[in-house]
Amino acid sequence: KKRTSIEVSVKGALESHFLKCPKPSAQEITSLADSLQLEKEVVRVWFCNRRQKEKR
């Protein structure tokens, strides 16, 4: 599967949402994915990776 490159504006939106809620529910992920026109899986993986980055 190809890597999904996420645009800067979209990254900003994800980042601000992450600061409010680092662990969104499935429903939040779905609505966020719909509003940003991304697949749910892409958003879910982005949050997983972002939480891991926070640990480092």
Rank of each mutant, 00 (worst) to 15 (best):
K1L: 04
K2Q: 11
K2Y: 11
K2E: 11
K2C: 05
K2D: 13
K2M: 11
K2R: 08
K2P: 04
R3S: 13
R3A: 08
R3Y: 13
R3T: 12
R3H: 12
T4Q: 10
S5G: 13
S5T: 15
S5Q: 14
S5I: 15
S5V: 15
S5Y: 08
I6T: 10
I6V: 09
I6R: 10
E7G: 14
E7W: 07
E7N: 15
E7L: 08
E7F: 06
V8I: 14
V8T: 13
V8W: 09
V8P: 15
V8M: 14
V8D: 11
V8A: 15
S9M: 12
S9E: 14
S9Q: 15
V10R: 06
V10I: 12
V10Y: 05
V10W: 08
K11D: 15
K11W: 11
K11N: 09
G12S: 15
G12F: 10
G12D: 12
G12A: 15
G12E: 14
A13P: 04
A13Y: 09
A13K: 14
A13F: 12
E15Q: 04
E15C: 03
E15A: 01
E15W: 02
E15M: 03
S16Q: 14
H17V: 06
H17Y: 15
H17I: 06
H17M: 11
H17W: 12
F18R: 01
F18G: 00
F18I: 00
F18M: 00
L19I: 10
L19C: 10
K20I: 07
K20Q: 04
K20F: 08
C21W: 04
P22K: 05
P22D: 09
P22Q: 15
K23Q: 12
P24Q: 02
P24D: 00
P24R: 01
P24K: 01
S25L: 05
S25A: 06
S25H: 04
A26K: 08
A26M: 13
A26P: 07
A26Y: 07
Q27M: 05
Q27E: 08
Q27W: 06
E28K: 05
E28L: 05
E28Q: 05
E28Y: 03
E28V: 08
I29L: 10
I29G: 01
I29P: 02
I29Y: 03
T30E: 13
T30S: 13
S31V: 12
S31A: 11
S31W: 12
S31M: 13
S31K: 14
S31F: 09
S31D: 14
L32D: 00
L32V: 06
L32S: 01
A33W: 03
A33R: 01
A33E: 04
A33L: 00
A33H: 02
D34P: 03
D34Y: 15
D34A: 14
D34W: 15
D34E: 12
D34C: 12
S35E: 13
S35P: 00
S35I: 11
S35T: 13
S35H: 12
S35W: 10
L36V: 04
L36P: 03
L36G: 01
L36E: 01
L36C: 05
L36D: 02
L36Y: 09
L36A: 01
L36N: 04
L36R: 01
Q37D: 08
Q37M: 09
Q37C: 14
L38N: 00
L38S: 01
E39H: 13
E39G: 06
E39R: 05
K40L: 09
K40M: 12
K40V: 13
K40R: 13
E41S: 07
E41M: 02
E41A: 07
E41V: 03
E41F: 03
E41N: 11
V42L: 12
V42H: 14
V42D: 14
V42F: 11
V43L: 05
V43E: 00
V43G: 01
V43H: 01
V43A: 03
V43W: 02
V43D: 00
V43N: 01
R44H: 09
R44Q: 11
R44L: 05
V45D: 14
V45H: 14
W46T: 00
W46H: 01
W46G: 01
W46R: 02
W46E: 00
W46K: 02
W46V: 01
F47M: 05
F47L: 03
C48W: 12
N49A: 07
R50C: 01
R50N: 01
R50T: 02
R51G: 08
R51H: 10
R51V: 07
R51I: 05
R51Y: 15
R51F: 05
R51L: 14
R51N: 05
Q52K: 12
Q52H: 12
K53T: 13
E54K: 04
E54T: 04
E54A: 07
E54N: 05
E54R: 04
E54G: 04
K55G: 12
R56T: 14
R56A: 06
